[in-house]
């Protein structure tokens, strides 16, 4: 077994920073519920493409930053992203071989799971999100997945992230 040095950590960091910025970019009140979970999408990609670099720990830390940024309960997004990272890493060999649209459906399931965990947490602290639009964000994420995948893949190849 040869030890290959890690490369392109900065690129991974930069994509997460961009995702965090997009998470708090102001949007008009009416389309705010439709904001996709940028951090989850980026995390899922890196867990699939570079599972030796990005995993549960990174997911948890990014989730904690999301919690601070959006002022939710500390640990809410951390838990969701850690679970997402875990499932993605378990299945990454399989998901990588799927065609893009099938991948997108898989991503939808992951994002819906995250959203479900969020509802449970928010329900437990008596702040239920009642609107139906609450469930729209995972679908937006699914529609965006092919583009995110292609962009991040090109970035990865260009900078030879491994």
């Amino acid at each position: 077994m040869t030890v290959t040095p890690h490369r392109g950590g900065l690129i991974i960091l930069a994509t997460f920073v961009l995702a965090l910025i997009l998470t708090s970019l102001p949007l008009p009140e009416s389309i705010r519920p439709f904001r996709p979970a940028w951090c989850s999408l980026v995390l899922i990609y890196w867990c699939m493409a570079a599972p030796q670099r990005v995993g549960v720990g990174v997911g948890w830390s990014v989730g904690l930053l999301v919690d601070v940024m959006t002022n939710t309960l500390l640990g809410q997004h951390a838990m969701e992203l850690a679970i997402t990272a875990f499932i993605t890493i378990k299945l990454h060999q399989r998901i990588r071989l799927f065609p893009l649209w099938q991948q997108a459906v898989g991503i939808l399931l992951l994002l819906l799971l995250e959203q479900l965990l969020s509802t449970i947490v928010m329900g437990a602290i008596h702040q239920p999100a009642s609107a139906l639009s609450y469930w729209a964000s995972p679908f937006v994420g699914m529609l965006l997945w092919p583009w995110i995948y292609i962009i991040l893949r090109d970035l990865r190849r260009r900078f030879k992230v491994s």
Binding site: L20, V56, G57, G59, W60, G63, L64, L65, V68, M69, L73, L74, G75, Q76, A78, M79, A82, I83, F86, V121, I125
Partner: peptide
């Protein structure tokens, strides 16, 4: 471990104020 720590943090954050210092430290990054 990650899930357990998160659950613990959520409970503490909801009921007590011990995590305010962690939050303000992280807010410097954010």
């Amino acid at each position: 471990a990650a899930v357990l720590v998160s659950l613990l943090m959520m409970v503490v954050d909801q009921r007590e104020n011990h995590l305010e210092s962690l939050r303000s430290t992280l807010s410097v990054v954010v």
